[in-house]
């Protein structure tokens, strides 16, 4: 949907094989090895977490692993920088609530 099919300068993008993973329990698809955040964005998912005190949504900001705004719970581990963490088959990605309790388990 938001993926660039044919780039005027770069042509087509080399991607890994298509894999399935879950976002808050729902099965979606992405390409192996690309950052989790990219696969989520391709599925129209922009909200990665809600802040501790004000419960405000946060998403990708720097996309290079520096700002840590995009952290989520991945395979049960909180605070994973999804903009640099490569996607693998069968990963369980969850919206992070505050410092790391999981939305899905609430």
């Amino acid at each position: 949907m938001t993926r660039i099919e044919e780039h005027p300068i770069l042509g087509t993008f080399e991607k890994g094989k298509k894999v399935q993973f879950t976002f808050d329990g729902k099965t979606i698809e992405g390409f192996e090895g690309e950052p989790i955040a990219i696969a989520l964005r391709a599925n129209g998912i922009l909200i990665h977490r809600y802040t501790t005190r004000r419960n405000e949504p946060r998403g990708v900001f720097c996309a290079i692993g520096r700002c840590t705004d995009c952290i989520m719970v991945v395979d049960g581990v909180p605070n994973v920088r999804t903009c640099v963490e490569p996607l693998r088959e069968g990963m369980a990605v969850e919206t992070q609530m505050g410092k790391g309790s999981q939305k899905a388990s609430e």
Partner: peptide, 25 residues
């Protein structure tokens, strides 16, 4: 400024030119 959809210009460049995805419409 903290809303998802506000990004650094570098992030836009990374998404489009490295990962092949449009940052937005």
């Amino acid at each position: 400024w903290t809303l998802p959809g506000v990004i650094g210009a570098g992030a836009a460049q990374t998404m489009a030119n490295v990962h092949g995805i449009k940052p937005g419409k």
